[in-house]
Nucleic acid binder design. Structure first.
Lengths: 349, 349
DNA sequence: GGTTAGCACTCTTGTCGCCCGAGTGCTAAC
DNA sequence: GTTAGCACTCGGGCGACAAGAGTGCTAACC
């Protein structure tokens, strides 16, 4: 299992060549492209060994080798992750993200778009996990008889709203009154401590029949909970069609079909980042068969975490072909994450 | 130019066959599939004539004929548009759309999704053109110093909001005061009569320095105007990859690239429906080269109008391959539109 | 004059055989 | 342990060939 340094070198060279040429790499071309001090025959022996170890494989008998998923894994694990970007790259990213300054969601989306643009792959963000954020304001506005708008302002400046149904006979006055009492009692509470019961008890002030009250409680509750629902945003799906990796129509279809199932992808990314630790800045990398999500076995997931304040985090990352320049992509994500965190900090203080 | 009835019959038969088989249709197979009372040789003569008229063409010398764009056009124009759907189809559509009952936007989106699902093509809706709708409510909520949420309720129950920047020192009280005065003065006004000037004059009540005031006026104004911006929603892009029409990768790419340019498509659809007549229930059909939108020349656009109340309308429709069952698709759109209009009516009264 | 049978012609599609080149594994020598 | 050499394998490209579908045209028919 332990790779001696030459095997490592050979593996890395194979991955590098394959990534840049998309052609199985043979012993001879390996010699030509890299300064190996040994002959192609020796490399052939090494390659046979690497194949026996399951790190590379042949598409057919008389072809060169391509990395297996395990090979990519070995390669990726041996990377120095945080390659420096050039100044111009940094500037580009920073300028791009600085462009949108209003809303925190805009900011995250812009960062994600930047990522897709710069890598040429699909990028994604997960909406921030807000269960630890606390309620700052809650207003209910009467829109018309039977309908109200619930506006929720959370810590860190996240704003959500929802149109809800209310009993027909309620007046704007009464709604305001209810809304005020809820706000007064729930402000400062983290979302995950807000339950149907706490909402109900926060409302008991008004003099409205119980049955009606229950409806309002329920609507307000769902409006609040909806603010914490998990959303994913994907950008750049079409770009993947430009890649030779998805040059076969069936593969392209497969990929786009799988990606169009937002919910599944969101669930998977969520699983990848289970620990709710805002300061965890590790990268999650899943390659090919490692991905337990139907139809994306020709891809790699690379995701990491952004944060809002001290309690709230979400994820951002890239879905690309297995055959990607991992070092570069990781560096990009890393710098985008850093820039994004900075901008969020500036925006929320 | 005038087609005698047999030529018409031949053309229709060719289109029908080509649509269902995606193969150039020859004189012999035409005889086999349809009850022509003449021989294949006669049909060959007719077909030669149709080709001379530019209605059909040959991919190459020894192949059958396929309809040209002009041929499709002739075919479509001769259709009895509103084919009845089967009861089960109607029920399916109605149930699907009845499922979403809360928000008017949800309703329209569901109708659009239904359209894509049932046709297997891309469906779209344009957000309602709201310039004739009038302001029912406008509230500004202080979120934190320097930031407010503008909530706008329009006639027909459309709700929009936007986070805006405000001068830092303004208090919640002052914001409320401003918001109330604006609301009082602008309520009942159609959006297209609201200008920077009317907003400004509606606000003069409060005692705030002019320079500050200008900022608020501007922000409120853009929030209002943004409510009227033209949006498009596309659904089912990936489904197009299942069609043989886009079986070549370059075509598939082209299509998806073009469709991903939302703004262009929105602009085009908007051009197709220039007259702001809510009761106009005509269909706009654009086929192949008729489409003046880069990269969609293998497609057909079929769009029509839905309405909200007496003044507000938007568009809904389908983008599919030229080679589609026009009669069926048009019928589907027609019934979806009808169902949607009904549901909207119920929701808004 | 419109219609039809017949026929020569065209062009695509699929298949088969062939060769070339790149790459491999193995052996024997260094 | 390394290397040169060699026989072997396999995919891709190319041309030849046959089959099949369709056409246009001509000459005969009603």
């Amino acid at each position: 299992m332990a790779l001696d340094s030459r095997k490592k070198q050979v593996l890395n060279a194979i991955v590098d060549d394959y990534v840049s040429t998309y052609e199985p790499v043979g012993s001879k071309s390996l010699i030509e492209r890299h300064n190996f001090t040994v002959s192609s025959a020796t490399l052939r022996n090494e390659m046979a060994e690497l194949e026996r170890m399951g790190l590379i494989e042949k598409p057919h008998t008389s072809a060169g080798r391509i990395p297996s998923d395990k090979g990519y894994r070995e390669y990726v694990d041996s990377l120095l992750r945080y390659d420096d970007l050039s100044d111009s790259e940094r500037n580009d990213i920073e300028n791009r993200i600085s462009g949108s300054v209003n809303d925190i969601t805009d900011l995250i989306r812009t960062a994600t778009d930047t990522l897709s643009e710069r890598t040429g792959f699909v990028s994604l963000y997960m909406s921030p996990r807000l269960h630890k954020s606390f309620l700052k304001q809650l207003k209910m506005l009467m829109i018309e008889p039977g309908k109200a708008l619930v506006v929720i302002v959370l810590s860190a400046g996240v704003v959500r709203d929802k149109v809800v149904r209310i009993p027909n006979f309620l007046t704007g006055e009464q709604i305001m009154q209810i809304s005020d009492s809820v706000e007064q009692n729930l402000t400062g509470k983290p979302l995950d401590e807000i339950t149907l019961v706490t909402v109900a008890s926060s409302m008991k002030a008004a003099d409205i029949p119980d049955a009606m009250m229950n409806q309002i409680v329920y609507e307000a509750y769902t409006a609040i909970k909806q603010a914490d629902s998990l959303n994913i945003y994907l950008e750049g799906e079409n770009k993947m069609l430009q890649l030779p990796d998805f040059g076969e129509l069936t593969k392209a279809r497969n990929l786009l079909d799988s990606l169009s199932n937002d919910g599944m992808v969101a669930g998977y990314v969520n699983e990848l980042h289970p620990i709710d630790d805002v300061n965890d800045d590790s990268f999650m990398i899943r390659i090919g068969q490692e991905i337990t999500l139907d139809g994306l076995q020709d891809c790699s997931f690379i995701t990491t975490t952004y944060k809002i304040g001290d309690d709230i985090s979400g994820n951002i990352g890239v879905i690309g072909p297995k055959r990607m320049e991992y070092q570069k992509v990781i560096s990009q994500i890393n710098f985008v994450r850093k820039t994004l965190n900075d901008k969020i900090k500036k925006l929320t203080e």
